Amino acid sequence: MSTLKVTAERLVIHPHHNADALELAQVGLFRAVVAKGAFQTGDHAIYIPEGAVLPEALIEELGLTGKLAGPAHDRVKAVRLRGELSQGIVCRPAELAELDLAEVEPGTDFAERLGITKWVPPIPVHMSGDITPAPELLPWVEVENIKRYPDIFTAGEPVIATEKIHGTACLLTYVVETGEVFVSSKGFGKQHLAIKEAATNLYWRAIVAHKVAVIAAELASSLGATRIGVFGEVYGQGVQDLAYGADASRSEPGYAAFDIAAEIDGEVRWLSPDGTGLPSAPVLYTGPYDEALLIELAGGVETVSGRGTHIREGVVVRSATERYSPVLGGRAIGKFVSDAYLTRKGGTEYE
């Protein structure tokens, strides 16, 4: 899931070809359905992204009572309205009426002021466990949606796109000095907490089955690293709604590494898992950055199982040569998520 920020954005308005009373307000590469005439190109408005949970008063003010996602009908989710994909909410909340949104400092986050929080999915029992402090855990970097930040990459820049797997993120850190292995989920990892080893825990089952800790130790030795972080996706039957062809007879979950962090001489370097002996996310494209091509590539069917058993979640794009992104204030990495994935029925979103 992406970082939650509720910001003031300049709009570009497009016609809605299937509804006379509706239009499309574009923010970045996202488009949200709005009432016709509510906004003009060049106007500034508040953009509330997917994954936001709204307070009851704001829901009522926006006329969205009973129309949002989740048991409490309070969560923003991508939907199709008269055939057009609508991602997020564009509005001018009364709470901010006194502000000239065009003059607001870019990137100012209004989430707290508006009482908006980030949706955190529940943790199933098999993904939870006893936790312990892990200050040496190497944290994973949140991957933002390129549609929200379309200037992460420049046209023609060499990039690599791997398949985004719908599972649950698994973080492992191997500490050379002590030989300790810390395993965590993305949610616990943000708090520098690790999950104690247990045969029933999903993450530890994947780590043991795929010898991730063993390979991490070997990498540390060959690279002269003091810490190795391996970041992967645990997937399969019983993990999320997309199982990649796995069935209940498979005793261990699937696992695919998508990033490695090596701390060498006090500096963290990001490496590809290819060639390490770890199973890794399929590479779908290597070449010049082409926005339209990569958006199309985010759709289609999965390649993880080799059988195309269901829709693809999307793609993760990174620069071919690791670099800093001034747009993100961190690594140049982002994702495109498929429309079919966003609007599927009965989907699960455990972290």
Rank of each mutant, 00 (worst) to 15 (best):
V176Y: 05
L29K: 00
E60Q: 12
T226S: 15
V181P: 11
D265C: 04
R92I: 12
A340S: 08
L137S: 08
F30G: 03
E351Q: 14
F39G: 08
A206R: 03
L172K: 03
D290R: 05
T226N: 09
T178L: 12
I264L: 06
P158I: 02
L24G: 11
E136Y: 06
P71E: 11
E56P: 07
G42N: 07
Q40A: 15
K5M: 10
N145Q: 06
L114P: 01
Q237D: 11
A206I: 10
Y285Q: 07
V104S: 02
L101E: 01
N145K: 02
L85K: 03
T303A: 14
G229Q: 00
I59V: 15
L114W: 01
A340W: 00
P158V: 06
V175D: 09
R269T: 15
S86E: 10
D43T: 13
T200S: 13
R113D: 06
A199P: 06
G314L: 03
G70N: 07
I207K: 02
T200C: 08
V76R: 00
T7Q: 14
E61N: 06
F231V: 09
V317S: 00
G107K: 02
L85T: 02
F336D: 03
V234T: 11
L99Y: 09
T7K: 07
L284P: 09
K211I: 02
A35T: 10
G37P: 14
I152D: 04
I123D: 00
L172P: 13
L22D: 03
L171T: 05
L219D: 00
